[in-house]
Structures are given as C-alpha cells and as structure tokens.
Design a protein around this nucleic acid. Structure first.
Ligand SMILES: [Zn+2]
Ligand SMILES: [Zn+2]
Ligand SMILES: [Zn+2]
Ligand SMILES: [Zn+2]
Lengths: 132, 132
DNA sequence: AACATTATGTAATAATATAACATTTAGAAG
DNA sequence: CTTCTAAATGTTATATTATTACATAATGTT
C-alpha cells in the first residue's frame, strides 16, 4: 500500500495542475499557470517539483526537461522509470511492464557497479502519428 | 564497418576535447576550453555537438546535460544508448551489452507504438565510491 | 515551551540552449 | 572552371531552465 504523503499547499497546487494536464509540463509553464494561485517565483515551483519527484508522485522526463504525473500508482519513489515518447506529437506515457522493470532492476554487468535506480526513455511514433 | 565522417574544423576540435577528457563534459565547459582555438560563442559549440550526436561520435547524458565520446566504436547514430552513472563521483560509462541492447531494441508493448530509439541511464555507486 | 525539520517568500543570478541573420567553405553537377 | 547547393561558420542577442542566498513561517516532536 502506498504511503500517504500529505502534500503541502504549493506541492498540492502543482501536483494537481500536472495531474490534470494529463501530459508532461515544463517548469515555467507550470509557473505561468499557478501565478493566479499566488506562486510567483521559479524557485517555488522547482522546490515543489523536487519534492514530488522524490516521493514518486511525478517523474522528470529528462530528454524534455518536463514533468509528468505518475501513471503507475505504485511508484513510491522515482527510481525505476520507463517512458515512451512520440517524437512527432510529444505525447508521453509511462510504461508499466513488469517483465521490463524486472529485467532492468536485476540488470548487472561486470563493472562492479551496483545499480539502485534507472530511467529509460523510448522514442518513436505513436499510433496516431504513424498513420499520418 | 563504420562510415568515415570527415569532421569539420569546429567539430574536430570539440570532439577531440571531449574524447581526450575521457568523461562527460558540459557545453559551457567545452566552450571555455576551446576559446583559445577561436571558438567564441555557445552556438558554435552547440552546433558541433548536435552534429556529433547525430553521427554517433558522442552521446548526450540527458540527466546531466553533458556530452561524452562514444566508447563503443559501433554507434553510428545515437539511437540505442545505455549508460551507468555514479551518483557520488559522477563517473559515466557507456554500457555495451548485446543482450541488453537486443532486449531493448526488440521491446514492444501493447501501445501500438513503434520504438526507433531509446536511451537508458542507470544510477548507483561505482566500485570506488561503494568502498568508501 | 523549546527545538528541529520542512516549507515558504523574494530577489538576484547562474547555467543551458536557441533564434535570427550574414558570410564562408566544401562538394556536386554541368 | 563555373554554377549551384548544402553544410558549416561567425556574431549578436535572447530564450529557457535551474540554483544561490537569505529571511521568515508553518509543522511536528520532545
Ligand atoms: Zn511512476
Ligand atoms: Zn504522436
Ligand atoms: Zn556509443
Ligand atoms: Zn563513483
């Protein structure tokens, strides 16, 4: 069962916005959208984002510098993430595939390194964009 | 066999610098280091980086906004990349594991999406940092 | 109440990346 | 060699993303 995190005021405002948007959002677009709610400075946004990433409510799409709500209900921390990204329409979705996550979580090579976290981003064309 | 790309002057200067450094380099650190060679503006660096990424001579480490020379000799384009990143010393190395790359290149799910590219970043502690 | 931790507010600035425009260089085609 | 085209360069300005520094307030614990 997922631990309940009591989000603070700013965290809640920002999480709700990202979650409702249904897709990835960029920090300054978030800032613009929450200014009417009293959040005026980039740092207020980045602090909330940092915390939300830390507790796994959102993830960062590194190749896009954007943040998306966890679509997985089970990511308690952002430590094993996989996304598919359409290079045409920029639609992003979180991949939830237990075989894949098992494979990657157990991956090890001869480097002597112990992996505690990974992030995978797949790129291609989504169904819609392929048929255009 | 790898296609020979005749690098232009700026591309060669910048590739050589990154390659010799042996690790990831950030764009503005590159800029600083090549100013004595006559490359004065960020755009000159970014244009060379773009091209070098395109032809697979370097890859971008998305989570670090940094660029590293391909350690793989076979990446003709930057379309299937995997890295291990030490979160303590920031050492980065390119993972060259044919099972992994086969698994990921063939990965497909029920989203109807055709994946043509991926980037995977593993995080953890390297051998050295683990033993500290 | 005292203390520690987390969150907030605000201003300034750092770091990363691109737009726009002019010019030059290098190849390919004739 | 000349013409044409694509790629690369040079330069200035600006956009976008993210953090530092410092002060204050709210929350939770003992
Ligand atoms: Zn998730
Ligand atoms: Zn699409
Ligand atoms: Zn490579
Ligand atoms: Zn290390």
């Amino acid at each position: 069962m997922q631990k309940e995190h009591n989000l603070s005021k700013n965290q809640k405002i920002i999480f709700d916005l990202i979650d409702k948007s249904g897709g990835p959002m960029k920090a300054y677009s978030i800032l613009f959208n929450v200014q009417k709610k009293g959040i005026k400075a980039p740092l207020q946004v980045y602090r909330a984002l940092d915390k939300l990433v830390e507790i796994g409510k959102i993830h960062k799409i590194e190749s896009r510098n954007a943040f998306i709500a966890c679509q997985n209900s089970s990511c308690q921390v952002s430590k094993a993430t996989a996304f598919s990204i359409c290079e045409s329409c920029e639609n992003v979705s979180e991949i939830s595939n237990s075989k894949l996550s098992k494979y990657l979580s157990n991956f090890s090579d001869n480097s002597g390194m112990k992996y505690s976290k990974y992030n995978l981003e797949f790129f291609g064309l989504c169904k819609k964009c392929k048929s255009k």
